[in-house]
């Protein structure tokens, strides 16, 4: 297998949130105040870890635990992982986590007064196929209150972690659902300055992915940073 070592292209202005986002209170004491040091991509940034399903077992169905169905609206999420040049990213790992249908995480830190579901834990792991496609089954997560500001509610969302094939491609993001009235009020969603980049975080309802008499289908694609045409000088 050839390991690619070409550096990644710079991040496009406005496409990523600012770490200093005053409307999201937790950023206040956590964002660095010094400008980030721009460094050339070396073998450390251009290469990255590889995860295989043999070592990191896939968990493609979050909607069932111990043979029992979780409460909620069953969904199928399908999409593609490509880079900025449109090239598929095959066999890459996607980590998934989310709240249950009532808007409660199965996590000791979540004290929201909504019921836990004994048949839902809320973590998944899938791998893209040779053409970059992935799919998993879950239930639609509920909205939940948080304490960022008075009467603050997070829109329905699913968390994702992607690795790509280079350290500089690491992506941690959240997928939202179409038509959610909470999106216009959510400082985390609104932290992405560019409107088009922001709206790409919203999944599309897809009747072709929808399974008759079984589950609603959503399409959600990921774009990871693309590489420059020329490889590193000496890697």
């Amino acid at each position: 297998m050839t390991i690619e070592t070409a550096p990644f292209r710079p991040v496009t202005d406005g496409s990523q949130p600012a770490n200093n986002t005053p409307s999201y209170g937790s950023t206040l004491l956590r964002h660095p105040k010094q400008a980030a040091l721009r460094i050339p991509h070396t073998i450390t940034e251009a290469t990255g870890p590889a995860f295989t399903a043999a070592r990191f077992a896939a968990i493609p169905d979050l909607s069932v635990m111990n043979g029992r169905q979780a409460q909620g609206e069953r969904i199928i999420v399908r999409g593609r992982v490509v880079d900025e040049s449109g090239r598929a990213i095959p066999h890459t790992m996607i980590e998934i986590w989310q709240a249950n249908a009532a808007g409660r995480y199965d996590h000791p830190g979540d004290q929201h007064d909504a019921p836990l579901d004994p048949n839902f834990h809320g973590n998944g792991r899938v791998f893209t196929d040779a053409e970059g496609w992935y799919q998993f089954i879950s239930i639609k997560p509920g909205a939940y209150p948080w304490r960022d500001h008075y009467n603050a509610w997070r829109p329905n969302h699913i968390h994702y972690s992607l690795f790509g094939d280079g350290f500089a491609q690491r992506l941690i993001t959240q997928m939202y659902f179409p038509g959610d009235p909470l999106l216009a009020l959510d400082p985390i969603y609104l932290s992405v300055p560019d409107t088009a980049a922001r709206e790409r975080l919203i999944a599309t309802f897809d009747l072709d992915i929808t399974s008759p008499e079984w589950a609603l289908g959503y399409r959600f694609d990921f774009v990871l940073r693309g590489r420059n045409a020329t490889p590193l000088e000496s890697a």
């Binding site: 991040v11 496009t12 496409s15 990523q16 949130p17 999201y24 937790s26 900025e84 040049s85 449109g86 980590e95 998934i96 986590w97 709240a99 995480y105 199965d106 996590h107 830190g109 979540d110 834990h121 809320g122 973590n123 792991r125 968390h159 972690s161 992506l171 941690i172 993001t173 959240q174 985390i188 969603y189 932290s191 992405v192 980049a197 922001r198 790409r200 975080l201 990921f222 774009v223 990871l224 940073r225 693309g226």
Partner: peptide, 18 residues
């Protein structure tokens, strides 16, 4: 050509995948 997907915070509940 499209630009890379936007990042969002990992949040306080990421331990579900830990």
């Amino acid at each position: 050509m499209s630009t890379a997907t936007a990042n969002q915070t990992i949040g306080p509940y990421w331990h579900l995948i830990e």
